Every structure is written in structure tokens, then in C-alpha cells.
Amino acid sequence: PRCSVGDFECPYARPGDPETCFQPSKLCDGNVDCPGGADEHCPTGCGTPVNKPILSTKTGERIVGGIDARPHSWPWQISMLSNGRHNCGGSIIDHHWVVTAAHCCTSGPSTYKVRVGEHDIVDGQGEVNAWTYDVERVIQHPLYQGREQHDDICLLKTVLPIFFNDDVFPVCLGSGTPPEVGTDCFTTGWGSQRQVISPPRMGEEDEAEVLQKEEDSKQDRVPNILQQVDLKVVDQAECARVYGSHSRPITITPDMICGENPGKDSCQGDSGGPFVCMSRGNSSIWELVGVVSWGYGCASPGIPGVYARTSHFLDWIAETIYND
């Protein structure tokens, strides 16, 4: 049957399953409406993957200096599709909400889709919990001003609530207490694996162009498999000194946090993705400390990557979700 207005087809329907219409308000209401009870698999909490990540610090030729992630070990990671192509990353924080970078959010909701539960973004057909959600709202931070880089955060609201399962689960936003300098944290994504020494990495258009060139030339520097890399939190004053003394100086503002590890970094295509650290109060819980934002080059020697500091935006995130 065709779904009526306000109803949607259940995610994760298998071949042969009858089409089932689902009302979003019925998620986790105690009554099974979707095949396999997908709408009633309602784990609580956040930041606790069923498939624990392998916390390797070895170096490979990935994400710049990272390694293949264990499948579905970072279950909040999403691929933000722009006109059907991977453009940016993002992090699930709620059944309806994803955090990404403001510079990834330059168009209206119809341009974007949120792909969840994916490990291989090219050949993920066997990934039973992969699903694509339409976007209802795209909300840039009101103070974001493009090339000035500050307030580089955006919220996406999905039309249908995101169904949680072993491969799809939210990350914790954490508290306002920042991680200590030197803390080992991780960033993940499907971005470029090429070390870039000079040009800045910023802007959705720049990323789309880089990814298009990579694909067109059939180079192997944009991965199919989700990558992870370990980075250490950098002292804010030191990060400000590095960027302030650069030939193209830029100010590191309080809403930013920096991460670095020699030869390792996030890069084009990773923007909007998670920068996560273990909770200071519970090492089994992962908290979203930053959102991949910008930097001069990728893994440029002595130049940290810069992330939107999520603790700075906790009030804005809470107010936006509450008021929507």
C-alpha cells in the first residue's frame, strides 16, 4: 500500500517483506510496526559502540596517516550526501539530529541526505543496517561567516527518525569540560588520504572539487572504507601561536580546538566528521569533542588541524533542538 501523508516506509525492509508504513511518533512506543521490530530496537545512552573500536596508533596511508576502522565501531559516523555524492561527514547525536560543519551546509535540505550504518561507501551492499534518510532542516550556526572559520557548526534534522541498532548509535555531546592537552583522541572519515603541505582545506566547494578530481583521475587516495586516525589535543595557546605566525595568519578563537600527530590528520571530505575522546569520567564512553573544520594543508609538519569545539556550542545545540 502507498503510505499516506505523514507516514513513511519503514527503513531496513528486506526483499520479500511487505511494504509497511510507519508513523514517526510510534518509534519506541512498545508496539512493533516495522519488519524485524526495527522501530522497537531502542538502546539507551550514547557513545558506547557495540563493536568496540580498535584503538591502534600505527600509521598507514589513510585519512592521512590513519588505518581502516573496524566495521561499525564508530556508529555515529554518517556520510552527508550532496546530490547523491559523499561530500562531508557528520555525527548522530539524537534520533532526528546530526552535527556537521557549517561550511558543509551551503544549500537547502533537498540537496542533502544522511547515510548511516555504512562502512564501505562504494560497495556497502551487504551492510544490513545502512540506510539513507532525507533531510528536513539545515541549520547553520547564526554567527558562521564563511572564510573567517569561526562558529563552523551545523545541525541537520532528518525527516524520519533515525533507527538505532548495533551499527547506528549516537555519540555523547559530553560536558563543558575540555579534554586535557595531550589527550589521545580519534577522528574518522572517508576523506582524502593525500598529505597536503600548503593549501588551506576549507569550504564545501573546495572539497567537492578535490573529490571530483580524485575520482576522475582514478587515483586511490579517497578511500572506500571508513578511516580512523589518532590525534592529540594541542594546547590552545600553542595552536594560536602557530596560526598567528603563519604567512597567512588567522585567529584561533575560543570555539575552536586543535589536534595534531606528526604525519596524521583529517583532510578534504572529512569535514563535519567527529573528533572524539574518551569521557574523562568513564573510559567506555566516547564524547564528541570537535567537528572537523579546517586547517592549512593536511598533516602539514607543525600545523595542527582545527575543529569546532562542541562544548562551546552545547547551549545552542540544546536550544535549537528544543525549539524545532
Rank of each mutant, 00 (worst) to 15 (best):
T177M: 05
G176M: 10
P262D: 03
C277P: 00
K218E: 12
W190C: 00
R194S: 14
T251E: 15
E214V: 06
L231W: 06
T183P: 01
C258Q: 10
S198G: 10
N224K: 12
T183D: 08
K213I: 01
P179C: 13
G272M: 01
K264E: 02
R248P: 01
D206C: 12
M202C: 07
E215I: 05
R241F: 07
S266C: 01
L226E: 05
V222W: 04
R221G: 10
I257T: 00
F186L: 10
G290Q: 05
P179N: 15
D235E: 13
P179G: 15
P200K: 13
V196E: 10
P249Q: 02
R221I: 12
S247K: 10
Q227I: 05
C277F: 00
S279G: 11
E238S: 07
Y243E: 05
G191I: 03
G244I: 04
V181T: 14
V229K: 03
L231T: 05
R248A: 09
E214Q: 09
I285P: 04
E238H: 10
E205W: 05
P262R: 08
G176K: 15
G174F: 03
M256S: 14
G176Q: 15
P223W: 03
T188K: 12
P249H: 01
Q268I: 04
S175T: 15
A208N: 11
Y243K: 07
N224E: 07
T177D: 13
V222A: 09
E260F: 08
E238Q: 13
G174A: 12
P200T: 03
V276M: 08
G244P: 04
V196L: 12
S217W: 12
G191F: 00
I257S: 01
Q236E: 06
V233I: 11
D220M: 12
E214P: 00
K264T: 01
Q236W: 02
L288H: 08
G281D: 15
L288S: 08
S284G: 09
G203N: 07
D265P: 02
D265Q: 06
V229Y: 01
C258P: 00
M256E: 14
C185N: 14
R194F: 02
T187H: 11
I252F: 01
L211E: 10
Q268N: 13
S266W: 01
N261V: 00
V229D: 04
